[in-house]
Design a protein around this nucleic acid. Structure first.
Lengths: 348, 348
DNA sequence: GCTCCGCATGTTTACGTAAACATCTGGTTC
DNA sequence: GAACCAGATGTTTACGTAAACATGCGGAGC
């Protein structure tokens, strides 16, 4: 373990990290040759290449990505700004984004915003501008972008998920209205006279869209539009809504704006002796993996989060490659209805 | 829109990005002064500062983080390697990591591995070495690190979650054994003669630990140890296990290795007319948000994912700051038992 | 045998930032 | 009033990489 002077190889603390120059010295070549080997360029004779590779191994050389990024002007990284990973939708979208990005040779940097105050959002956007990121995907449950009060820094490539800002940014989203229409129509087709509704939080763009579509379908069909019950995505709020709905004898069908609230509904109905689907039919939204194992298995609207993630990355890469500014426009991913056992024709 | 020669400000495509030199030129100062302003250093007279700030605004200057990282030798970024975000535990841990890291001025880079083959894992680790990352947190459900077949590159600061590699790496984890003990003891304390068990996948370190602890508690208490039923974390596998268990008249208590499998159990029992908790008590593990809204609300072991995330970041930052190698050791986060309505004393 | 060509390798330079050092100004002290 | 000092600003340099250009060597063609 004794180390004697000279240019001694690591072990000691001569240097924090091995650079090309170190490898070059050990291999007895120039650092440019090391660069060529490192990048797999042609034009290096095999004996030299072997020597360099051996030196790399011995020193444990790994390229410095900061220097590379500085050189190339690109980081091969996409930033993802979001409020929360705890919702199923967000985490699955992020996962799909990460997977797709990895396939394209890009990494993902997460920029979480714990409390969505305007200051925090602005702060995150500012920091983001300084981050090692070639483009940004914004997953915004809350429509701050839409109002124009929050602006993304110019010159940053941006794709927005779940927002109304299609006129100014490139937007990718599940086709919320389409999904809600499928849910409501399914219930009407079964013969229900109308469909009650548990909303998502008012701040949610997706929730608003679903509620709008619910109302539109009922109006189109000439059905009465019952007052919506307000939820906040949580099972708990669904449970509360269920306790109210259980008291209404003419409520035979409910469309919950997500599966978790539907779960709350199911529990409230179960506790109060309201049978699903015999007395009341329930439809959710999202198709979370557990939905098939609720009691009873939940009929719900399937969202293709993976596809949303893929299109986000594609949009971001298109912008990076085209080097153009953001090309506004909205890219909607279709949904499908998964019919399970929580829906049936009304009695009588 | 006509642009005439000279150093014309953006709009055209003279330059991809604004640098300090551009700002310096416009403000009529040296780039070093711009640097001082940018970093909030003292020793810049306020009139000069104003001039520089104005120039920054006009040009939309944003510091180049690659250059900064190259200069400082740090990226202010922590990498997170994981297999999947879809499990509640992982996504909540990641969220906690991201939040804590943000509070410390660090960003998070996700490195997903879709299929956990050894090649892919090795590839990810190799790529990681080249990534713009100061430390890495590995969230490994599968114990590849433990076997020694997969090695992390030396010289990288690493914190491992959910693994047995405490002798070689710095490990942070929920105290799985402690949680499982609480669950089983709770059931025994209620008067059950023994406790059946639905395991997680064999590849999961956490699952193994829970199963070991389950067996140990039964043996300590002198209870018979029924054969465990094998699950894979999914509601579906829990459902299958439930169908078997429902046929066993002497099964009065079940400990499922996670909440989703417990959900499957509940559904199977419900369908087959086995009442919970009157006929059979069920305990889960994780305390996912929905657990309180299962039918009946699930007694389960609460994991403090947020604390795990915090300790991971702390461990990573300690290593970065100390510049020492990985300091092996295991940091266990305690659990707590949340008693709800799925458990009760046995009948008779 | 000399020139020319092509290939392997070396040298120079720029990417954007910021520490370290250098300079310049105006005011203060004896 | 000369020397000095402090504070504001400018200049040089290095971080690690890789493109662009330069060199040098051996073989083919005449």
């Amino acid at each position: 373990m004794v180390e004697r002077g000279g240019s001694g190889v690591p072990g000691g603390r001569r240097k924090q990290r091995v650079s090309m120059a170190d490898v070059a010295k050990l291999a007895g070549v120039s650092s440019q040759t090391v660069s060529r080997v490192s990048n797999g360029h042609a034009g290096v004779i095999s004996s030299t290449r072997e020597q360099v590779l051996a030196a790399m191994r011995e020193l444990g050389y790994r390229p410095n990505s900061a220097a590379r990024a500085l050189r190339y002007g690109r980081f091969n990284t996409i930033g993802v700004i979001l409020f929360s990973l705890s919702s199923t939708g967000n985490s699955r979208t992020v996962e799909a984004i990460a997977t797709q990005a990895a396939a394209e040779g890009y990494a993902i940097t997460l920029i979480p915003i714990d409390v969505p105050t305007q200051d925090n959002v602005l702060g995150a956007f500012t920091r983001m501008g300084e981050l090692a990121v070639d483009a940004v995907i914004v997953i915004m449950e809350i429509h701050l972008l839409d109002t124009g009060t929050v602006q993304l820094p110019p010159g940053v490539h941006v794709v927005v998920v779940d927002s109304d800002a299609g006129d100014r940014y490139s937007v990718v989203d599940t086709d919320q209205a389409d999904g809600a229409r499928r849910a409501v129509r399914h219930l009407l087709d079964l013969g229900h006279r109308t469909v009650w509704h548990v909303t998502g939080p008012e701040t949610s763009f997706a929730g608003q869209r679903r509620t709008q579509a619910w109302r539109a379908v009922l109006e189109e069909a000439g059905c009465p539009v019952p007052p919506p019950l307000h939820g906040d995505w949580s099972s708990e709020s669904g449970y509360a809504a269920g306790q109210e709905l259980a008291r209404l004898p003419d409520c035979t069908a409910v469309f919950a704006s997500n599966d978790q609230m539907a779960l709350g509904l199911l529990r409230a109905f179960h506790e109060l002796g309201v049978r699903v689907p015999e007395d009341v039919s329930v439809v959710g939204f999202d198709d979370i993996p557990d939905a098939a194992f609720f009691v009873p298995p939940l009929t719900t609207v399937h969202q293709d989060f993976a596809e949303v993630g893929r299109r986000c990355v594609k949009g971001a890469l298109d912008q990076i490659r085209a080097r153009g500014g953001a090309r506004p426009g909205t890219d909607l991913v279709p949904t499908s209805l998964v019919v399970r056992r929580s829906t049936a024709p009304p009695r009588g």
